[in-house]
Structure formats: structure tokens, C-alpha cells
């Protein structure tokens, strides 16, 4: 049970970091596409989704691994 609560804490804290990062990346793309050119709406939205998905894929393992290390270190310390 204790292991499960640690796991869920890792998931929760990681999610709270990588999800905003991905959404920010997608929004930045959307803003850039809106500002820099006359792109169709679907292309802008599709591009934002694709950049968001790729950012999620990149940030998810990196953030999860770091959070996991930090929480495990804290558990060991306690």
C-alpha cells in the first residue's frame, strides 16, 4: 500500500509539471502560427496538438524520472 501511495504521488506530481509544459508548448505554437502567417485554422490547431503531443512525450519520462528520484531520496532520508 505504501508503495502504491508513493507511486501515485510520483504520478500526480509529475503530471502537474509535464502537462503544463506540454500545454505551454502547444499554446506557444498556436500563438506563433497565428501571428506569423495566414495558416488555416485546422493547420494551426493540428500543429498545436502535434507539438503538444511530442512535448508531452519528451517531458513525461524526463520529469517522471526526476520526480521519482527526488521522492525516493526523500523516502530514504526519512
Amino acid at each position: 500500500m505504501e508503495g502504491n501511495s508513493v507511486e501515485s504521488e510520483i504520478t500526480r506530481r509529475s503530471l502537474s509539471i509535464y502537462l503544463p509544459i506540454s500545454i505551454t508548448a502547444a499554446l506557444l505554437f498556436l500563438i506563433a502560427a497565428s501571428v506569423t502567417g495566414d495558416y488555416p485554422t485546422v493547420a494551426r490547431a493540428g500543429g498545436a496538438v502535434w507539438v503538444g503531443v511530442l512535448s508531452l512525450i519528451v517531458s513525461m519520462p524526463l520529469i517522471t524520472a526526476r520526480v521519482k528520484k527526488r521522492i525516493k531520496a526523500r523516502e530514504t532520508h526519512n
Binding site: 508548448a25 505554437f29 506563433a32 502560427a33 506569423t36 502567417g37 493547420a43 500543429g47 502535434w50 507539438v51 511530442l54 512535448s55 512525450i57 519528451v58
Partner: peptide, 14 residues
């Protein structure tokens, strides 16, 4: 590679 995929997409898009 995923980072590169973002870069490639952004380059060809813009």
C-alpha cells in the same frame, strides 16, 4: 529523436 521531430515539424510548418 522526438525533440528533433518537433524541430522538423516547426521548421517545415513556418
Amino acid at each position: 529523436v522526438h525533440m528533433l521531430a518537433v524541430v522538423v515539424f516547426v521548421f517545415w510548418f513556418f
